[in-house]
Write a protein that binds this DNA or RNA. Structure first.
Lengths: 210, 210, 210, 210
DNA sequence: CATGAATGAGTTTTCATTCAT
DNA sequence: TATGAATGAAAACTCATTCAT
């Protein structure tokens, strides 16, 4: 408790914008951009409307800042994927595991996906930047792994423009969780999910002849 | 031409609600529930605000009616899937082809998916009803096909609770089109998509030994 | 009273914007542009804020419309000045009498002058248009009269670019009334004002030699 | 240079209020009382809002202090007029020349006139005090000069309550410059202005007979 | 049925002012 | 003194909804 008191003016000031961004995330996720009241964001932080406007010029600005703020973990994921080693299969599994963890299992990223789908049309620049900074590099990474695997004879030949099929189960699980919000479609355990995912992805549905 | 002219009062009146639902769809898709103005819907029809309220009690009522109105084609899909014949593989391919056509390629269904993701939290009953009426039966259908295929030795053994992975590429393509709205990620031809989809789904990514 | 009831919807609608413009005039005059509350304008009309926005998009729009509305009488003045006859002196007296009546004596125009001085910087386009449509033509008219009078030997030779000195007593009286608002500087009778004005203007202050 | 550096704490503090008054003048002139933000005044000085409130209790207080501060030069003018000598005509010319210089040519006084016209209704006491301290004494001075000139036969007999006509070209020029802000109505040279002004004032517009 | 003027409750935004540091 | 974060009251503006015609 004494420790809490130690929060000085200066520290408080550095904290405020983060607190507001956190609160904004919750409210925007709950009600969407248009449906969210700035006052509710403020209340969640424990300040008044006016304070929000001290830090963010408009509701739009706040929304954009919030999206940027919560996109940071995604960037870290990108860094990790560069340091993998092993066969193409092993590295692909690693990346897909990480992606699953980051997108489907992490509530923040999952809800970010909701906002991108729901509000993307109102913030096209934000979407474009996200595509360029997050989606495209990851897709490129997976593409190059597949190309490498095909070149080495590890993978069968498939048209590389469809590499999003490789990550499809991850995005699909993410979206289904967004829609049914764990009421329906309860989430089974991660290990089983990944095991089946990789089994299907690498071996296919058909029983092998012979 | 004379026939067209005959569309007078009585028919016009029967048409009105449909026109309003169509306009509502466009506006709700464009701006979301909270961001849409009833006046803009009216303007799109060429009437005034008041007229919308002649047919629909509130904006919420209109939204729900619109969702129901545009969910009809989906029901037809369900009927068709019961009449298929052939091997499990063939029937699965047929269902997935139909689903792809209906969900990823059809703009209306695609945008309905956006609304479900974006506004689902505000209209949980709507979502639940949709799950029960559309999603569950289709998943059940696919599940039973897979079970059947596994039983007959046509398919390998996979845990049936992950059957959504089978349709994942379809939902993924749908969502990516929603997000990037054909600016990025241009849609390749359908045949190539389905060919690769089925190839991967049935045979997997790995080169077969031998 | 029955007559008042006769005001139908249609007539009421045609009246509303005028009522709002009248109320806007009073409030803008009283508090200036920034100091005026749209709600006070509405209250003066006996409607609510929202109604004002039915007719005028923004406070700025309303302000501009109000200025334009009340500038109309000024245009009529211009028309009259073209129909004068008599000597240059007589016509000049007629014009100056009209101007005095229209600018210094008419409360509406007088307050319009206040708004032009006070808010001109915020609405430069409005000011420019007024200059071109009202001020410039009147100055031109007076200029041409003076030139004509000088040519005919009726007037002494003076540099024509200073013709605003000829109307100076009118604008000065206007401004003084605006500043002291009849508390100080009580207004003497019009006839005496014009008599002295013309006497000084035509004969000057100095006693004539001889 | 060393001297300039010496302006430290003590002198800085003595300077602050003046700096604030100067900044307040510019902002109040630009946006009017209601339209001016205290923050903009502070920013112009290079301090923060709070600092303004260290020196002035409220925005109103600041406005009034600013008006008083910039009215000082006017007082000096009054002193000078008492020391003139020569014929009534000569002294009148001197006074009018000084007035022209002080009111029409001096930007500060000119803008003060704008504020008096624009904000006078909100600050009636300020206006009254100004009338009593500046306007009335000057008008009185001119009145007495005219009376003296009439008594000595130098001037023709005119009703003395209209002496504001004598200064009208000065106020008129001031107001026109305020309205058109030198965009229209470019200012001709001072000498020509005064020459024509005095010529018209003393001799009138009419060609003298004989 | 259709209108659209009017409402009023609500939302975003602004800003003078305060006060702990 | 100076700061600037925070306030809160108010102002501009919005819009779903109503209702007399």
């Amino acid at each position: 408790m004494a420790a809490e008191k130690k929060i000085t003016r200066a520290e408080q000031k550095a904290l405020r914008p983060i607190q507001i961004l956190d609160a904004a995330f919750e409210e925007f996720v709950r009600c969407g951009f248009a449906g969210t009241r700035v006052e509710d964001i403020a209340e969640r932080v424990g300040v008044t409307k006016g304070t929000v406007y001290v830090y963010f010029e408009t509701k739009e600005t706040l929304f954009e800042a919030m999206i940027n703020h919560f996109s940071v973990p995604f960037q870290e994921l990108l860094a990790i994927t560069d340091e993998l080693s092993g066969s193409a299969t092993e590295r692909l599994k690693s990346i897909l595991s990480l992606l699953y963890e980051q997108i489907a299992e992490d509530r923040t990223t999952r809800e970010l996906v909701r906002l991108v789908i729901a509000e993307g049309q109102r913030f096209p620049d934000l979407i474009d930047r996200h595509h360029d900074e997050f989606i495209a590099p990851i897709i490129a990474k997976i593409d190059s792994l597949i190309v490498e695997g095909m070149a080495s004879g590890e993978f069968r030949q498939i048209p590389v423009e469809f590499s999003d099929m490789v990550v499809a189960p991850i995005l699909t699980r993410t979206v289904l969780r967004l829609i049914f919000d764990d009421r329906r479609d309860p989430i089974p355990n991660k290990e089983a999910f990944l095991r089946t995912y990789f089994d299907l992805l690498f071996n296919g549905l058909l029983a092998k002849p012979g």
